[in-house]
């Protein structure tokens, strides 16, 4: 029964790169992105006056917008892989960074003000997890409730703080610089930070034991539990990460626009889910990749840019997002039926 190591190495090799590309969850979206990008470049070369895609200003704008939603989607995506949803990110994205602005405005040291926002995110994530897992409620419902609770609680807190619905946010110069400078004159720093966070998320999902547990808990909670994984604890960590990523994205945003406000960012949570679905993550958990999320965020922003450049009505983006979510469900079901 025992084979030599040489035999083993010959019999069990890595899957071929073709096979890995084919079976990679981000395969279809990567092809879609490349086709769309090629189409935009061709259209821009053919119609340089009407379709100004290749103008440095336009490219810089696209890259500047991607991290905003992309960071939220990274957290939501990790949670989706663990088998749960988080719609509360839409409110956390606004409320937690607002707390940073309020605290900093009140004289709290900047690092502590940021930590306050992170702490709020952690608490919201823990509450989401506690209610969802403790009472076995679908996370869609729990976090939808939390979305509205946080959304309405934020203005209430604002009233306590003198009723200012927006605050100028001027963080220390060094912090602002590393988040807003243009590298090489055109590459927004926030895009680079987004890629760095994506690398961290990749390492977490693919190289860290927690990632293995996220995939297992989302793919088959019973089997995961049977293998000795504490499914509830694993999902709780994912809920917290989702909130924290939304908060980091919010802090990036208020730093970029230099104002913190409590007005809700409509549909950010749905856009985040859409990015994940476009990126090949399963709505039923257990499948997905960081590459898919990154490219999904790029695709969504590209579509928005095409709509702007082609001077199409803005609701086309919503239509695209809606179509992508429905298509995602259909594809997910098809995959489930296949196996």
């Amino acid at each position: 029964m025992v084979a030599s190591a040489v035999d083993s190495a010959l019999r069990y090799r890595r899957a071929s790169w073709q096979s890995r590309v084919r079976s990679h969850p981000a395969g279809p979206v990567t092809i879609l992105f490349v086709v769309m990008l090629a189409g935009c470049i061709v259209a821009s070369l053919l119609l340089p006056e009407q379709f100004r895609f290749l103008l440095p200003g336009n490219l810089s704008l696209v890259l500047r917008q991607i991290p905003n939603l992309g960071l939220v989607a990274l957290g939501v995506g990790i949670l989706m892989i663990a088998g749960e949803f988080d719609l509360s990110v839409g409110s956390v994205f606004v409320a937690a960074p607002f707390a940073t602005a309020v605290a900093y405005d009140a004289g709290v040291p900047f690092a502590l003000a940021v930590l306050i926002a992170i702490a709020i995110a952690v608490v919201i994530g823990l509450i989401n997890a506690g209610i969802t897992l403790g009472f076995r409620i679908p996370s869609f419902i729990t976090t939808l409730g939390m979305l509205f609770i946080v959304r309405t609680a934020a203005p209430y807190i604002v009233d306590l703080y003198g009723g200012r619905k927006s605050l100028p946010f001027r963080p220390p110069e060094g912090f602002k610089e590393v988040l807003t400078v243009d590298v090489f004159g055109f590459l927004p720093a926030q895009f680079i930070w987004f890629l760095l966070f994506a690398v961290l998320a990749y390492l977490l999902l693919n190289r860290h034991f927690l990632g293995n547990h996220f995939f297992a808990a989302g793919g088959d909670p019973k089997a995961a539990q049977f293998a000795g994984i504490n499914v509830n604890r694993t999902k709780t960590v994912a809920f917290v990460l989702s909130s924290v990523f939304a908060t980091i994205s919010g802090i990036f945003t208020i730093t970029r626009v230099a104002v913190a406000q409590t007005n809700p960012q409509l549909f950010i949570e749905l856009y985040a889910v859409a990015i994940c679905v476009i990126g090949g993550l399963s709505l039923f958990g257990g499948r997905g990749s960081v590459l898919g999320i990154v490219i999904g965020a790029c695709v969504l922003q590209l579509v928005q840019d095409i709509i702007l450049l082609a001077q199409l009505p803005g609701f086309y983006l919503d239509m695209f997002v809606g179509l992508m979510i429905v298509a995602g469900v259909v594809i997910n079901q098809a995959i489930k039926r296949k196996y």
């Binding site: 293995n212 995939f215 297992a216 793919g219 019973k222 089997a223 293998a227 257990g286």
Partner: peptide, 20 residues
């Protein structure tokens, strides 16, 4: 419920017992 079907064989073998 022996294995997580959406995960690779290698990841399944070590699920919950990863060498760290």
């Amino acid at each position: 419920i022996a294995l997580v079907r959406s995960m690779s064989i290698m990841r399944n073998i070590y699920a919950g017992r990863e060498p760290l």
